[in-house]
Design a protein around this nucleic acid. Structure first.
Lengths: 206, 206
DNA sequence: CTGTAGATCCACCGAACGGTGGAGGCGCGA
DNA sequence: TCGCGCCTCCACCGTTCGGTGGATCTACAG
């Protein structure tokens, strides 16, 4: 039996979730909380296996609560269930130690499978969330720009167009475009502006 | 005859400058001051043509004094004479309205030529100061992004297209383009990629 | 010696961007 | 009250960029 705690500041949402899991024979909702701090207490006191956590809440938010839980109740798994899938929400949550990240448009069936997966220690991510992670998970071999690619990126950061970068490096414009495509792939971005941003974040640029 | 006022908190320096200009037949030191506020008063009361201004002073510093002078005595020219040539000193002084910027290692002869040039309304800059200005040709008011502009730049750094940034901020795409044009102007760049680079260099972005 | 990684180059296309020159509204301080 | 800074929006246009799917060459390691 999976012991589940629901943390969400909306009573309506909590109600809906409780109903959803009422049908499941292997899942029991042992407690609820309306904010992060309360959620941590409940999860600890009730020995939760899985905590279903909203992100945006008054007081202690979901990320902080997740981090606190990971520290104080390491055996419980935190499954994020929220409306937002922007990078700014996803990444901190994962970093804080959430094992899964679902969106609130998930079907009840998906939700239950996700809770069971989380209880087994498996990771479940909503498809759109996976996208965000792709670019930030450093695949082996990826995330490392070649010297040439770094040169190109630096030139772009300094305001060079493809043509100008080509002239500066004594190569053709086509090669600059190819290098840039490789850079985009490796950094998980789609355009030169965010490539430059990633370059600074990863300290590849000065 | 050029009426000169010396503003410096060190009596020794003031003495040295007075001596220097004692030889000049077309320059007369009509007054001295030990801090910015006093300097503004003297320059105004004595109808100074040129004010030789130190930057680091107790009380009102050279930048503030320069700004005050430009406003209250528009006819007088402020010539900065200081030991420091870092960007953080140079740029604010120029923006405040100084017509020239010399370092204290200048020879007496250079100094006098500079005062005469300033009196004629010409700009005189120490060579190392010129360097700093090259990359930062900033008109007054430039160099500071508004909150909105910072938001836009951050979104662009995170990979947003103009359209996506517009959606995120609940405004039209045209407004994003306008904001970006202003950002380019202020940062002295021509495209989003180098704007992002400048944003990181100036610690406007995370 | 053969696979792999890196660097170079090509063509085509639609979409996005940058440049220019506006315009109106709002709030704040001189 | 007037001006200024800021934010918002518009149209037009040429240029650049990004995406795709190739290709050749070199150097190096297995």
């Amino acid at each position: 039996m999976i012991r589940l705690v629901i943390v969400d500041d909306h009573p309506i949402v909590r109600g809906g979730l409780r109903d959803t899991f009422a049908d499941a024979e292997d899942i029991i909702v042992v407690g609820e909380a309306g904010d992060g701090a309360e959620g941590v207490e409940r999860a600890k006191g009730l020995a939760a296996d899985v905590v279903l956590m909203d992100l945006r809440m008054p007081g202690m938010d979901g990320v902080a609560a997740t981090a606190a839980l990971r520290e104080r109740v390491p055996d419980s798994r935190v499954l994020i269930l929220t409306t937002f899938d922007s990078e700014n929400d996803v990444l901190p949550a994962i970093e804080a130690g959430a094992i899964g990240y679902l969106l609130k448009d998930a079907l009840p069936d998906e939700l239950m499978r996700a809770v069971r997966a989380a209880a087994r220690g498996e990771s479940v991510l909503a498809p759109s969330v996976t996208q965000h992670l792709m670019g930030h998970v450093r695949r082996p071999g990826a995330g490392t720009l070649t010297d040439r690619e770094k040169e190109v990126l630096q030139l772009v950061a300094n305001g060079s167009s493809n043509r100008e970068a080509a002239t500066a490096l004594f190569i053709g414009e086509a090669s600059i475009k190819t290098h840039l495509q490789h850079i985009y792939d490796k950094l998980g971005v789609r355009d030169r502006a965010s490539a430059v941003a990633e370059g600074y974040r990863r300290r590849l640029l000065t």
